[in-house]
């Protein structure tokens, strides 16, 4: 995956809570056997009407957010199905950072494995970002090394991330290769625990 260290981008404010992965990518698009090409299906039924035309009222379709790469949303983002197609669609559409007060566990993990940085900030901080970005184009600066989110209007917030995942994201490491360096230990465990088929 592509490393992420410092990142700046336009904010897209999606002021909804409990956005589930069925909304992020509906099930009719899960039948592909590749990891790529899912961006066109992102928020499909919110973004497009029944005839496939853009729904102008939906935030992603507004011109000030067209090039957004940082999604800011309400709490419990990514709940529901474990489909990794959700972060694949976000990434393919152009999002590298998602900010919300809280994330569903599986979605959060899935982001980390794909070089998307999920950032959890307080309800107030997220509220401020949503408010600032309402109706206009705003930029945010994300510094993973410093674990900080800032903008030009004096907003500054620190965020937490597990140091292990921080290293993985900063370096864009392949997790399986790292785990395989512990191969001997896994074999030893299998022998001692007599893991049976």
């Amino acid at each position: 995956m592509e490393p992420i260290k410092q990142f700046s981008g336009t904010v897209c404010p999606l002021d909804r809570s409990n956005v589930d992965t069925d909304q992020i990518i509906p099930k009719q698009f899960l039948k592909r056997i590749e990891r790529t090409g899912f961006g066109q299906f992102l928020f499909y039924h919110w973004r497009l009407d029944e005839e496939g035309k853009e729904n102008e009222a939906f935030v992603l379709n507004k011109k000030q957010y067209k090039d957004a790469s940082i999604l800011v949303a309400g709490n419990n983002f990514g709940c529901g199905s474990s489909r990794e197609h959700a972060p694949w669609a976000l990434l393919d559409y152009g999002f590298r950072v998602v900010i919300a007060p809280s994330f569903a566990d599986i979605f959060y993990n899935n982001c980390l494995k794909n070089g998307i940085l999920p950032i959890s900030l307080s309800e107030e901080q997220v509220g401020e970002l949503l408010h600032t970005a309402e109706g206009k184009q705003t930029e945010l600066f994300v510094d993973l090394e410093q674990q900080k989110v800032t903008n030009n209007n004096g907003f500054s917030a620190e965020f937490q991330i597990d140091p292990y995942w921080k290293q993985m994201l900063l370096n864009g490491w392949d997790e399986i290769s790292l785990t395989l360096t512990l191969d001997e230990q896994i074999t030893k465990f299998e022998k001692s625990a007599m893991v049976k088929g």
């Binding site: 972060p87 997790e175 785990t179």
Partner: peptide, 18 residues
């Protein structure tokens, strides 16, 4: 527990998860 596809690959290759 449920996992994403990258984790499926990780388990297939290593039989473990972080």
């Amino acid at each position: 527990f449920g996992i994403g596809t990258s984790e499926v690959e990780h388990v297939l290759a290593t039989q473990t998860l972080w």
